[in-house]
């Protein structure tokens, strides 16, 4: 790993100042993706601004929405009693990310800012119609995720929290890579009453909504309803673990499992 200057500001304003000054600087939250990437030599920033000193941690359940601060770890999201009542599928999802040691460090903000095409959270944010709050503005999930490792975040913009509307029912199912636990395909379904949203991760170059499923589920929110609803193979990922056709098939299987698990 190349050397860098390390900063651990205690205040958001200080983090903003430091990152603004460093052209080749990066923000780090849990570091669970960034540090392995740097160790492999795939990133060599001049400065690392560690956001873990901000103490921006917490889950607040309100009447119609849940706000999770960006520095909240996957372990904290997974074990939150309040969240398990409000959006149980989100707690389940967080408890299936990586492994226990990774979940002690990895955070919601870090995961979505990195936008790995096989990360779990993006599927939940899309399906739950979440709003990403940064130090500058609020961004709808539909506008936030831009494909492979890209988001609409601007340079120096820092994710501070995510607002999740509480759905009537939601479920998540993933077919995990047995080594990395990343999703080969993960599907998050959410019934918002008036509308149903289906977020798919792992299958394509970035998270996407399966709108053909959303249409049929709006009338009948059940596993049977999505039987025979195909996912277009053209844009899907293909690698040593799964072909594009297999991933397309898995979207259907995971959607059914997510619907069966929905609470």
């Amino acid at each position: 790993m190349e050397n860098f200057d390390y900063h651990r500001p205690a205040k958001l304003a200080d983090a903003e100042k430091i990152i603004a000054k460093q052209k080749e600087g990066v923000l780090m939250s849990g570091g669970m993706t960034l540090l392995p990437t740097m160790k492999q030599g795939l990133a060599a920033p001049s400065d690392v601004v560690d956001l873990s000193g901000l103490g921006n941690v917490g889950i607040k359940v309100m009447k119609t929405k849940v706000t999770i601060k960006a520095g909240t770890t996957h372990a904290e999201v997974a074990k939150s009693g309040d969240l398990k009542k409000a959006i149980p599928a989100l707690a389940v999802l967080a408890g299936e990310i990586g492994d226990p040691h990774v979940r002690h460090k990895g955070t919601l903000g870090g995961s979505i800012a990195n936008n790995d095409p096989a990360a779990d959270y993006p599927a939940a944010l899309m399906a739950l119609d979440a709003t990403i709050i940064t130090n500058k503005r609020a961004i709808a999930a539909d506008k936030f995720f831009k494909g492979l490792f890209e988001t609409s975040l601007r340079r120096g913009e820092i994710v501070t929290a995510v607002d999740f509307p509480i759905p009537e029912k939601a479920g998540y199912a993933k077919f995990a890579n047995p080594a990395s636990r990343y999703a080969i395909v993960g599907v998050f379904v959410a019934n918002h009453g008036k509308a149903v949203r289906v977020g798919v991760t792992g299958a394509g170059p970035g998270v996407f909504r399966q709108k053909a499923m959303e249409r049929v589920l709006a009338k009948d929110f059940s596993a049977d309803a999505v039987a025979g609803i195909a996912t277009k193979v053209d844009d899907l990922n293909e690698d040593m673990h799964a072909s594009a056709e297999y991933r397309a098939h898995l979207v259907g299987v995971m959607a059914k499992r997510a619907l069966k698990a929905a609470k």
Binding site: Y6, R8, G31, M32, L35, P36, V48, D50, S52, A75, D99, P100, H101, V102, H104, K105, A179, S180
Partner: peptide
């Protein structure tokens, strides 16, 4: 960051010390 041979407890929580900066 996959094998866990480097697991230690930091402030009471198990973490991978090969994916943790000393300064943090």
């Amino acid at each position: 960051s996959q094998c866990g041979a480097c697991v230690v407890h930091v402030d009471g929580k198990a973490v991978k010390s090969c994916s943790t900066l000393a300064l943090s």
